[in-house]
């Protein structure tokens, strides 16, 4: 199955080049091309895609602004002429970050990354509802139902249960994909188990007395996923 993708790029030659590369790749289905982030945002409010090829610097909304406004962020490959944005891109857990002009070999590498992440995601549903985390030289089984929330701490994440917490070396993006739809990223630094939420007030929620912030971008998705009266 091909992955649906869009291109958001204001610079005409970069756009055409990327368009051609996407059209020629057997694993990609290029569904739309946008010259600005505003139009892409409107499109994404009703359409779901697997991948966004996203320019950083654009007149009006930037690529980062677009991500901030999305309720659900698919895999993102950022493209830019400046490497200075790489750190910011990392904060958004993008799949890859390419310097323009995008070279064919680098393009293929980025698509391979996308496909790999996507493959992991699609196998999750067939997996058991548990993960093993390595701590103190042992692997400890954690049932999904025991996990309260997960906090990002730099290059590590901390998984909280009622009785314990476990620090493991992985990324929020990976866990988000791995854990499936019982869990939701509500903030850049937090993934929560939806069944464990006891209270939501404005831009915070509470799980086991822990107050967890909800980002503006993630709140609509959270409200959608909860069984609201």
């Amino acid at each position: 199955m091909k992955l649906k993708c869009i291109i958001v790029e204001d610079e005409v030659m970069a756009r055409k080049s990327l368009q051609r590369l996407c059209e020629q790749h057997e694993s990609l289905d290029l569904v739309s091309v946008f010259e600005n982030a505003e139009d892409a945002l409107v499109f994404l409010s009703t359409e779901k895609v697997d991948v966004i090829w996203l320019d950083v610097e654009m007149p009006g909304l930037s690529g980062f602004d677009l991500l901030e406004n999305l309720t659900s962020i698919p895999q993102v490959i950022m493209t830019t002429t400046k490497i200075e944005y790489a750190f910011d891109a990392y904060q958004y857990q993008v799949t890859d970050y390419l310097k323009k002009p995008v070279m064919l070999p680098r393009f293929k590498m980025a698509v391979d990354k996308v496909l790999e992440l996507n493959a992991r995601k699609t196998t999750v549903s067939t997996q058991r509802q548990e993960i093993y985390v390595k701590t103190d030289g042992r692997y400890i089984r954690l049932a999904y139902s025991d996990i309260l929330y997960i906090e990002n701490i730099g290059d590590y994440v901390k998984i909280y249960t009622h009785d314990n917490s476990y620090i493991i070396h992985t990324t929020m993006k990976y866990l988000e994909e791995k854990l499936g739809n019982q869990f939701l990223r509500v903030h850049r630094s937090f993934i929560v188990h939806l069944d464990k939420i006891v209270d939501i007030e404005e831009n915070n929620l509470v799980i086991a007395k822990k107050v967890i912030p909800i980002s503006r971008a993630n709140k609509p998705e959270l409200m959608n996923r909860l069984n609201m009266l």
């Binding site: 080049s17 051609r20 002009p101 070999p105």
Partner: peptide
């Protein structure tokens, strides 16, 4: 050639 991989159409 590095960018377009020898694809003359692009």
């Amino acid at each position: 050639n590095e960018i377009y991989g020898g694809d003359l159409s692009i």
